[in-house]
């Protein structure tokens, strides 16, 4: 009996599985389907790749919190404080690559951008509000982004870029 060959291909949300004993047929079909997928969706960019691309852009720009605030938060008219803290957690976690994030780190972000009356803000409450929207999670007394939170930030930024 001939060997059976299997190919599973996945790019973004699209995927296909091929199975045959004929390797040539399989390879041709694979090329066909990959071409079709790419033609249909244009350039398919996986969320992870999109994220990497944005992060490398941020890193290459050596963004400070002030620049991040000016270019991506203020420019996108993000004024609601629970949304602001999500952007700050994104900056700390994904750009500064901070291992653990406490409420005090977020307060420091407000201080760094000279936010009016930042020392009177109830930041733990703002973080909790973002957690209620499933944008942040709180594990072992540290804050981090959920995938929904990351999507929220990236979609807002990409909308502006596009």
């Amino acid at each position: 009996m001939d060997h059976k060959y299997k190919i599973s291909f996945r790019i973004g949300d699209a995927s296909f599985d091929l199975e045959s004993t004929d390797l040539d047929w399989l390879e041709n079909k694979e090329k066909d389907y990959v071409t079709k997928l790419l033609d249909k969706g244009g350039k398919i960019v996986k969320p992870a790749e999109r994220n990497d691309h944005l992060q490398s852009t941020f890193r290459s720009q050596k963004l400070t919190i002030k620049e991040f605030y000016k270019n991506y938060i203020k420019a996108n008219k993000i004024t609601a404080r629970p949304d602001l803290v999500v952007f700050f957690v994104y900056y700390l976690e994904r750009i500064l690559k901070k291992e653990v994030i406490k409420a005090s780190d977020v307060i420091q972000c407000f201080a760094d951008i000279s936010y009016p009356n930042y020392n009177k803000l109830n930041v733990p409450d703002l973080l909790t509000q973002a957690k209620r929207k499933a944008l942040l999670k709180y594990v072992n007394n540290f804050w981090s982004l959920t995938i929904t939170g990351e999507d929220f930030v990236l979609n807002t930024i990409l909308d502006k870029v596009q």
Binding site: K131, R132, A134, K137, V139, S144, T146
Partner: peptide, 13 residues
């Protein structure tokens, strides 16, 4: 692990 954490937090509130 983050997927598992998100799953649990997803149903909160």
């Amino acid at each position: 692990l983050n997927c598992a954490l998100d799953l649990i937090h997803n149903f909160e509130n």
